[in-house]
Design a protein around this nucleic acid. Structure first.
Length: 848
RNA sequence: GCGGGCGUGGCGGAAUGGCAGACGCGCUGGACUUAGGAUCCAGUGGGGUAACUCCCGUGGAGGUUCAAGUCCUCUCGCCCGCACCA
């Protein structure tokens, strides 16, 4: 399935040796198909692993093969293709691969829906369709490196990497309350739950106590956070999102002994300086000590009911902002270790077991949430931080005070300022072994088990004798069984497949059972960009020399929806792979471009809104070059793009315009000299100036700023200029100037519209691909102007324009401008306060 | 609530603090044409004028500056992300 169909009937490049005869009319249908075949037959986009040229790794996020390409894909891959083609022409050895994120639920759901269609069949059909579409778009992928994560040759290494993580203690199994999507019939990672709902199907997620596999991404929390500063080529927005997601906070853990029990519980607080202000204590309803505390209390029944209610609530109901904060007294007390005070213990719905320690100290005077809670339940409020100014009064204060101040009512710490107090209390806690300073992260371990079939099986075996045993590496891959049934039972087909489940223990050889969960597909996509460097290697996950030669990815391009999920997981994997010596880079993606969405009528294209424009139809009607050009021209890449059928027409017209400019003069251009005798002057000089100014602008906009829209507009201006130039009497024109302009026009346009430019390039006598031409350098001499028009401002308002020599000095500029009769008129009777010359631009005269 | 982004013609969008509106779409007029939804030419922010580089104009209000769409302060509106995080 991964071999690219090879057409042996295609004529070789050598057949183009004859001069291509250009038709009168631009016929994209003929041109695009023709060149796509040539490119493929000539392996034009095959890239060697090692080269004298400097490397450049240009990567676009690989798609899930959902059926057909949508406009978002077209945008993503058009952007990537411009970058790849540009860098190639700039002299880089460019790795530009494509593959398929091919495991996942839709395939399995389709299998259930369509009876006996195997997910593999569905997936492969889709891959074939989408690969064909990508080829029709003329994207310059090296298809020899194509991968699909559902291929055993790939998921063998997914499993192998799982084993490496396991070996290093980073994969573990634990029982936990996890997110369960009833519709997808599987658990989800925290990152895959948005506002309490399943990210994929929007079903409200439930909590279930299950034993599941996790990756210890939290071990890397500090490095993932610290190294964000290395990501200079990433959008600020994405970095901030990751920072927030990791959610580092410094504080302290404090142990509070429970009265009448030999146990204590621990709270996490960022404000240990307020510990003398504790007037109550709150445990999460699921906190393991709740049962022990209430056991002998009269409140026990009531609390149990409350705990059950909260436990059964969906995440969304529980965490809604407007959810009422409900707390109940347990009847139990704990002791504040700082001052020996007896403090009532409550349970409340707003305390989350998963964050910190699942227990919170209530300091109503200095925490707004505690304050509101205390007011509601008439709990005492005690001031322990006093700012400069009038004394805070617990009875009259309207909100908590969380600012700076000095500690009061705090025994030996009285008078210590807040920040110092935090440190002092932590020191004291550590000295007396009552607690310690800690850093807490919001990030939680990555839950990777999925109770579904269409994923990479987790390579573990459960032996009654030996316990949990990893599958030996030489036994990989653990293959998905072929003959299973897909029924809407909500159970994984793997669990119902005896052939798969029953195995023998690799250690003792006795009967044992396989793990039947598969891995989160984000695992598959966390390392695919490494695998592209050794896509067919059967003996190693990749070749060290190749992977270290290519990585890191120089430019990564994709949707911002992966700001956390895929990009954080990939960073985690990268750090792990670095630690175990499999790679040498510590971050995977040097530069990241997050492209905006494609909108229609102001909304994201979606079937339900009925505003979908199909790439298929656009390509069929206008051709790939038009589709690409429009999508690149309509907006800068990071911004959302509003689809416009009329805009597409405009780009189509433009390509026709290019055709009509070049095709009729191909004979003339063939005869034109390719160099200059002497310096072009007059109109010819102007034409050359435009040509070289365009080279400059397109090079900057494409290479440095990724503003493809302005690059395209510059090319359009060049075309407009060429049309004017063409209209001049033949005796005034210089064929060499024309030739230079047209050739450069085609080269500059080539990364955007690769087919038409290739055809015209061949049509004006070239025998090699335009996509193998070096990117032109502009001639600084050519863009120098002799005379420029500068603006004369009077108090900042434009009043006059003056033609001056381009190399005029500022002083001379002043002089010349002031000498203008019109300027003389304007300033007559007024006092000239100041004259500000801006070289090359303007002179501003300030008068009173 | 916190964080980020964005407000410019009829529309998509251009403008290292230096001529606001490049380029494209749309629209208006004209040419060519049996025809035009092809192509070419001209015009196209608003207002005023016989005319003119006359006035106004980048969501709103201030400020900095010789000069502000651009920098600063406040404010309004929209979009996105996170959200009882202790």
């Amino acid at each position: 399935m991964l071999t690219t169909p090879f057409c042996d009937k295609i004529p070789k490049w050598s057949c183009v040796r004859r001069i291509n005869v250009l038709k009168e009319r631009y016929d994209f249908k003929e041109i695009e198909g023709k060149w796509q075949k040539y490119w493929e037959a000539e392996n034009l986009y095959t890239v060697p692993d090692f080269s004298q040229r400097p490397k450049y790794y240009c990567l676009e996020m690989f798609p899930y093969p959902s059926g057909k390409l949508h406009m978002g894909h077209v945008r993503n891959y058009s952007i990537g293709d411009v970058v790849a083609r540009f860098k190639t022409m700039k002299g880089y050895n460019v790795l530009h691969p494509m593959g398929w994120d091919a495991f996942g639920l839709p395939a399995e759901n389709a299998a259930i829906k369509h009876g006996n269609m195997h997910p593999a069949e569905w997936t492969i059909d889709n891959i074939d369709t989408m690969r064909e579409q990508l080829k029709q778009l003329g994207i310059s992928y090296d298809w020899n490196r194509e991968i699909a994560t559902c291929h055993p040759g790939y998921y063998k290494w997914t499993q192998w990497l799982f084993l490496q993580l396991y070996k290093h203690g980073l994969a573990y199994k634990k029982k936990a309350a996890v997110n369960w999507c009833p519709s997808c019939a599987t658990v989800l990672a925290n990152e895959q739950v948005k506002e309490g709902s399943c990210e994929r199907c929007k079903t409200i997620v439930e909590k279930r106590e299950l034993e599941q596999w996790f990756f210890r991404i939290t071990n890397y929390a500090d490095r993932l956070l610290d190294d964000i500063k290395l990501l200079e080529g990433w959008p600020e927005k994405v970095k901030i999102m990751q920072e927030n997601w990791i959610g580092r906070s410094e504080g302290a853990e404090i142990h509070f002994p429970i009265e009448g029990l030999e146990e204590s519980f621990t709270v996490f607080t960022t404000r240990p300086d307020t510990v003398y202000g504790v007037t109550y204590m709150v445990l999460a309803p699921e906190h393991p000590l709740v049962e022990k505390i209430i056991d002998d209390k009269p409140q026990a029944a009531e609390i149990r009911e409350f705990v059950n209610n909260v436990r059964n609530l969906s995440e969304i109901a529980r965490t809604a902002t407007d959810a009422e904060k409900i707390g109940l007294f347990t009847g139990g007390y704990c002791i504040n270790p700082m001052n020996g005070e007896k403090v009532p213990i409550l349970v409340a719905n707003y305390v989350l077991l998963e964050y910190g320690t699942g227990a919170v100290m209530g300091v109503p005077a200095h925490d707004q949430r505690d304050f509101e809670f205390a007011r509601k339940y008439n709990l005492p409020i005690r001031i322990v931080i006093q700012p400069d100014g009038p004394d805070l009064d617990p009875d009259t204060m309207a909100e908590a005070y969380s600012g700076d101040g000095k500690m009061v009512n705090s025994g030996p710490f009285n008078g210590t300022p807040k920040e110092e107090g935090i440190k002092a209390v932590i020191n004291y806690l550590e000295e007396k072994k009552l607690g310690r300073g800690v850093v807490n992260f919001r990030l939680r371990d990555w839950l990777i088990s999925r109770q579904r079939y269409w994923g990479a099986p987790i390579p573990m075996i459960y032996c009654p004798q030996c316990g949990v045993v990893p599958v030996p590496e030489q036994d990989l891959p653990v293959l998905l069984p072929g003959n299973v049934e897909f029924k809407p039972t909500g159970r994984s087909p793997l669990a119902d497949s005896p052939d798969f489940v029953n195995t023998t223990c690799p250690e003792c050889g006795k009967p044992a059972r396989r793990e039947t969960d598969t891995m989160d597909t984000f695992m598959c996509s966390s390392f695919y960009y490494y695998r592209y460097t050794s896509p067919r290697d059967e003996n190693a996950v990749w070749d060290r020399e190749k992977v270290n030669g290519w990585l890191p990815v120089d430019q990564y391009i994709g949707g911002v929806e992966h700001a956390i999920l895929h990009l954080l997981y990939s960073r985690f994997f990268t750090k792990f792979l670095y630690d175990v010596g499999l790679i040498k880079n510590i971050e995977p993606f040097t530069n990241l471009l997050t492209q905006g969405m494609v909108l229609k009528d102001g909304a994201k294209m979606s079937k339900s809104k009925g505003n979908v424009v199909s790439p298929e139809e656009i390509v069929a009607t206008y051709g790939a070059d038009t589709a690409r050009l429009f999508i690149l021209f309509a907006a800068p890449p990071e911004r959302d793009l509003e689809w416009s059928d009329q805009g597409v027409e405009g780009c189509y017209r433009f390509l026709h315009r290019v055709w009509r400019l070049v095709a009729p003069m191909s004979e003339e251009l063939l005869k034109a000299p390719s160099g200059f005798d002497g310096k072009p002057a007059g109109v010819n000089r102007e034409m050359r100036r435009l040509t070289h100014a365009t080279i400059k602008k397109v090079t900057e906009d494409t290479g440095n700023r990724f503003n493809f829209n302005t690059a395209v507009s510059a090319i359009m201006e060049l075309v407009n200029g060429l049309y004017q130039y063409k209209e001049l009497p033949e005796t005034d024109r210089d064929p060499a100037v024309m030739r230079e302009a047209v050739e450069h026009l085609l080269i500059l346009l080539a990364p955007f519209a690769p087919h038409i430019t290739e055809e015209l390039w061949a049509g004006i006598g070239h025998r090699d691909s335009i996509h193998r031409q070096p990117w032109p350098e502009y001639d600084p001499e050519a863009i120098i102007e002799d005379e420029i028009t500068i603006v004369v401002q009077l108090n900042g308002k434009v009043r006059e324009r003056v033609l001056v020599p381009a190399d005029i000095t500022p002083d001379k500029m002043k002089e010349l401008v002031l000498a203008q009769p019109r300027v003389q008129n304007m300033i007559e009777g007024k006092q000239v306060v100041k004259v500000i010359p801006v070289p090359g631009k303007l002179v501003n005269i300030v008068v009173k």
